[in-house]
Design a protein around this nucleic acid. Structure first.
Lengths: 268, 268
DNA sequence: CACTATTTGTCCGTATGTATG
DNA sequence: TCATACATACGGACAAATAGT
């Protein structure tokens, strides 16, 4: 019952308490934590759980009500409004899979920033470029059916980036662009993490600040193991999922053969 | 030069101006916008650029100085600190990889909740069990070197769960337990998302409420495609990363062979 | 119908944080 | 550095609506 503290402004992140509570409640509602057509716990109960004052909880809930997530009635409590039609589970999961190279074909990218810069540390390490070597940096937002779902910051070594114009970045996949310029993709490694939307990213993805985002960092190498692209992608989790399947190999060992793909969710 | 506008609290997002300025400046420095060993523009200049008061800019810069990104000297301006000595890349990345079955061996799990329940909707769908069929539910926290890094909620069909005691859940991997009871793991599918720590999870993982977490949802099937386990895992991103490598196959097609693994980060 | 417990709605006073000029 | 204005957050108090007995 002793709960973990929220981030007081004494700490690191100066985000108002009521807004933090708001975000957590919003996510719970969307995840079905309180059930469909359910009731939110009473203000006092939530105040105890989050260890804040009732007024702070009330303000968080009022914003939920203002956004149509709940309905409040004095004396009766707070009812969760059922957003019609819970997102249908796709009938054919595998049919919706898209691999890395296909991604560009079904989506559109908009270039927000473009230029040649001295790369940040991680990019330098991953791409194995010198400390004073310029790399091409691009910030883009990728959309599907006009709905933004990912925010990309990419770094490409200068000797490759010279051949890529800003218009190129608008186009489909970088993979096909690379191929066209004689660069043979050899391998890629990527890692998964999570991050919060800050004001800039939140605006670009049309989500509130503080929304949790899936973060994928990827390094692409050519067949001679030279760094070709270092990219960090932030995904809206309500519009995008990274899926993978693993199958045991025939030997029955503990190793799995894996296949990865992504799924863009249907409109919400 | 024209930058995206800051978000006044009058608008949607209640993030202090000085912190927004702080974030933008920090990113510029990391991206090399002002060059290495460069000087930050004067406070008044930045104040004009961001259209805020000089004091607001000063506060943002002071936080940068406190975090070691810049050095301030009265009358001389603000100098960007180059931090060389990049954090050493682990000598052997692949040596740190752990696959699914190995996970249990190096970590300890603590059972927080344990019992037989009617499963929530997604669990029922994934495991293909009837609406009134009981399944075993367990909530655990997994730790490495005494540091919690993941929060697991698992569902196992009743006919399997009968054979698994609460003590079993403390032990190593479920995979080896399954094998011991004659269940042949066939395949698994998982998807990646992100979520926020609520008070309960925040306490279990020792992070503040609102911390972004990597969320992995996994369904394990036996060789006859029957659901064996449905599990949702929330990971601290500062202590855990999910990595995967992809290698182009020999045909040169757009398909990749993938191998996945996880890395528990060293203590911070 | 009244009585009560619960819950939301509203106000006060106070303290601190934020942002401006 | 100061004065000012506004936002945030707290505890306390009370009123008003609701549901159950």
């Amino acid at each position: 019952m002793a709960d973990s503290p929220l981030v007081r402004s004494a700490g690191e992140i100066p985000t108002p308490l009521y807004h933090q509570v708001h975000l957590v409640l919003r996510e719970r509602i969307e995840q079905g934590y309180y059930g469909p057509n359910g009731m939110l716990p009473a203000e006092m109960e939530l105040a105890r759980e989050f260890d804040v004052s009732r007024i702070t909880v009330a303000r968080a809930i009022n914003e939920l009500a203002q956004q149509g997530f709940v309905e409040r009635r004095r004396g009766a409590g707070t009812r969760i409004v059922t957003r019609d039609l819970p997102p249908p589970v796709p009938a054919n999961i595998d049919g919706l899979l898209e691999n890395l190279a296909d991604m560009g074909n079904r989506t559109k990218a908009k270039v927000l920033e473009f230029g040649f810069v001295l790369p940040p540390l991680e990019a330098r390490q991953e791409l194995q470029v010198g400390p004073n070597e310029l790399v091409q940096r691009a910030v883009r937002v990728r959309s599907h059916n006009g709905e933004p779902f990912s925010y990309l910051t990419s770094f490409v070594p200068g000797y490759i980036g010279q051949h890529l114009s800003e218009e190129d970045m608008n186009a489909g996949s970088l993979m096909s662009l690379f191929e066209r310029h004689g660069i043979k993709i050899g391998s890629a490694r990527q890692s998964f993490s999570a991050a919060l939307a800050d004001p800039k990213i939140g605006q670009a993805l049309a989500v509130p600040v503080g929304t949790p985002l899936l973060a994928i960092t990827r390094t692409v190498l050519d067949i001679e193991e030279r760094g070709v692209e270092y990219i960090r992608i932030l995904y809206r989790t309500d519009r995008y999922q990274y899926r993978m399947t693993m199958e045991r190999d025939k030997q029955g060992s503990s190793r799995f053969k894996t296949a990865a793909g992504t799924q863009i969710k249907n409109g919400g």
